[in-house]
């Protein structure tokens, strides 16, 4: 990424990005129209919970797509700030459900006010050598020291592990989405924002398509204990159609359609299992959703779980296979 790229984007976004955004808004308009028609027919008094939830979800999608569109048009700074804010909300949801005690207060304050901003600053500053090990090495070693200095040993290992896990998932992994901007792919200069759009689109459409396939054809549950709404039919239908969508989006990536399909399959599988893992944590903690900030979806982690699991793998595959740095 060259230094003058972000300002250029600020003035005029890449034509491919404009095309993509217009298509996305068209999809949302169609979804809203379908949601409205279903509501008129099946839930005129607002009694059908599935339809009401569907429309809540569509409304929230509008907000999320608009936020993402603003960030993408604003360029690197916009994307870094957007994902830093998402990480903040997700970290807050995660730590809320942990068993931290008073003795963890400094370590937690450090996680929120030092580690999180530092990680995103390092991504913004393009410092791959440090942002890829900052949390797994430096935060990993210093946070238990800070907690130990407070002298409270009750549940110590559980407490520090929970905070480590929270940071890895909600900050380290999530920061690999904006980190895609630091890759340098010959012949793809100035278009890295579209790589982010590709990743987010494939993951999120996979979630949506699994939901739709599951509602239409879902019979056999995959993991009834973990996530009662996930079915084999929904998963297979959603994964295949999202992979096909990924292949169809290869025009905005540095990949051939076949490569795009393979990468999409990896993204979709990681996303699916990410959702499963985060569901296991929710069951363990006895909650249905991570939070309540996004109407119809739950919390930030409920929406981000699949992105978070897919992002680092996608980042490293692309870095290894296509990037020169």
């Amino acid at each position: 990424m060259t230094d003058d790229a972000p300002p250029r984007f600020l003035v005029s976004p890449h034509p491919d990005l404009v095309t993509l955004l217009i298509a996305l808004f068209a999809v949302l308009v169609a979804a809203s129209a379908i949601g409205y028609a279903l509501e008129r027919r099946l839930s005129p008094d607002g009694n059908n919970a599935v339809i009401e939830n569907l429309n809540d979800r569509i409304r929230s999608w509008w907000v999320m797509v608009i936020a993402m569109a603003i960030a993408l048009v604003a360029g690197k700074a916009g994307v870094v700030v957007l994902f830093a804010l998402c990480s903040f909300a997700a970290l807050r949801e995660f730590v809320t459900l942990t068993s931290t005690r008073r003795g963890d207060h400094w370590a937690l304050a450090g996680a929120f006010f030092i580690v999180l901003p530092a990680q995103y600053w390092l991504v913004y500053a393009d410092w791959y050598g440090l942002y890829s090990i900052f949390i797994p090495v430096y935060a990993f070693l210093t946070m238990p020291i800070v907690a130990a200095l407070r002298g409270d040993t009750e549940n110590y290992l559980v407490r520090i592990s929970e905070v480590q896990w929270a940071l890895m998932i909600t900050v380290f992994c999530a920061s690999h989405v904006p980190a895609l901007l630091t890759l340098q792919i010959p012949g793809y200069e100035g278009r890295n924002l579209l790589l982010i759009a590709f990743l987010v689109l494939v993951v999120q459409s996979s979630d949506v398509l699994q939901y739709v396939w599951g509602k239409l054809a879902g019979r056999t549950r995959i993991a009834p204990k973990l996530s009662p709404s996930k079915t084999v039919e929904g998963f297979v239908g959603g994964a295949l159609s999202a992979t096909a969508l990924g292949a169809a989006l290869s025009w905005m990536t540095p990949f051939t359609p076949f490569q795009a399909a393979l990468l999409s399959l990896v993204i979709v599988l990681m996303g699916f299992f990410g959702g499963l893992v985060m569901s296991a944590i929710k069951r363990d903690r006895g909650v249905k959703d991570w939070g309540h900030m996004i109407a119809g979806h739950g919390g930030f982690i409920d929406r981000l779980d699949s992105v978070v699991f897919a992002a680092p793998i996608f980042f490293h595959l692309v870095r290894y296979g296509w990037s020169t740095v």
Partner: peptide, 15 residues
């Protein structure tokens, strides 16, 4: 009480 335990001056953002 977890956001702001007694004796701390910096709140930790929890829900």
């Amino acid at each position: 009480n977890r956001v702001m335990p007694k004796g701390e001056f910096l709140p930790v953002p929890l829900i």
